[in-house]
Simulated assay, not measured.
Amino acid sequence: MSLSDQESLRYSRHLLLEQIGEQGQLKLKDAHVLVIGMGGLGVPAATYLAGAGVGHLVLADFDEIDSSNLQRQVLYREQDIGQSKVLTAKSQLEALNSLIQIRAVNRRMDEMLLGMEVAQADVVLDCSDNLATRYAVNQACVKAGKPLVSGAAVAFSGQLMVFPFNRPEQACYHCLFPNAQEQQLNCANAGILGPVVGTIGSLQALETIKLICSMDSAAQGRFSSFDAQHLEWMHIKMQQDPSCPVCGQAHSAP
């Protein structure tokens, strides 16, 4: 497989990068990426992945566009209010890059459908906005052994976690938040500054590209918290909980 003349021209700035080059761009072209949630995080993440030439992009969401979304979900327009997020995003991203394949999953995913979609993906991005979905996506990725790039944001704060799941002793999302309750603070009641989700979503795309192109990254296996108000980061190395029911020894024992 090789790049066409059109692709070589389009991705010429990638080809100049030693860490990507033609082989990396071919990996991106062959990659299958699942983006769960097409809100404030999913919009920038999917946009940069489409622009980067990820060959197979799956967008999953069942929500419709609301006027309050437009403050930060900048892929959508006023005339899109009331329309499906994933169908609108698919149309917009196809206009950005006609050389890739984009599929929309415009429904709530049950355990079976989620497992099927994760199993087909090379990398999964959790861009959801609720704890139940994060737990479900994490469990599906652990079960399938698929890399997970997880993001979250509220008010002026953001979080980024990259779970490569390429070693049995690596932590998962459940290890970090084993007894978490659904947060009282969310974008609907605490607000969100648009560029915060833009920052985290863009970093999710960045880390996804690194995973696909087999690039080293300090973000893998650590919890990163972003304070946008003071422009500060805090990083914590993630440790597996041996008793974790999702990825720990109890889970793996026969």
Rank of each mutant, 00 (worst) to 15 (best):
M116A: 10
A119N: 12
Q139T: 03
V33N: 06
M109H: 01
C175G: 01
A46D: 09
S2T: 15
K85I: 06
L15E: 06
K85T: 05
Y48F: 01
Q73L: 02
C244W: 07
K27M: 00
L49M: 05
P195T: 00
Y173R: 06
N106S: 13
C141W: 03
G55P: 06
E78P: 14
C213Y: 11
L176N: 07
T199R: 13
F223T: 07
V33Y: 08
S4Y: 13
K27S: 05
A50N: 07
Q181P: 00
M109K: 05
D5F: 09
I20K: 12
I209L: 10
V137N: 08
N69G: 13
L26K: 14
N166Q: 15
M109A: 00
I236K: 09
V196F: 12
N69R: 15
L206Y: 02
Q184M: 11
G201F: 12
L34S: 00
E169M: 05
T47I: 04
G151L: 11
P254C: 08
F165E: 00
L160F: 01
G221P: 13
S202T: 10
L93K: 08
A60H: 10
S4N: 14
F226W: 15
A121G: 12
L17A: 10
S243P: 00
A152F: 04
P242S: 09
M1K: 14
A60F: 12
D126F: 11
P195K: 08
R72P: 04
P178V: 00
V149W: 13
F177T: 03
D216V: 14
N106E: 11
N138S: 07
P254Y: 11
L185A: 11
V35Y: 14
V54R: 15
R77S: 11
Q73F: 08
D63L: 03
L41I: 00
G201H: 09
Y173P: 06
A95M: 03
S4V: 07
V162E: 08
Q159H: 04
F177R: 06
G201A: 09
E22T: 13
Q101L: 03
A190V: 01
D80G: 08
V43R: 00
C175A: 02
F62T: 07
A140W: 05
F163P: 15
Q83I: 10
L99R: 15
L176W: 13
V35A: 04
L9K: 14
V124A: 06
G158I: 02
A250L: 13
G158V: 01
S214Q: 05
G82V: 05
Q101N: 05
A228I: 09
F163K: 10
G82D: 11
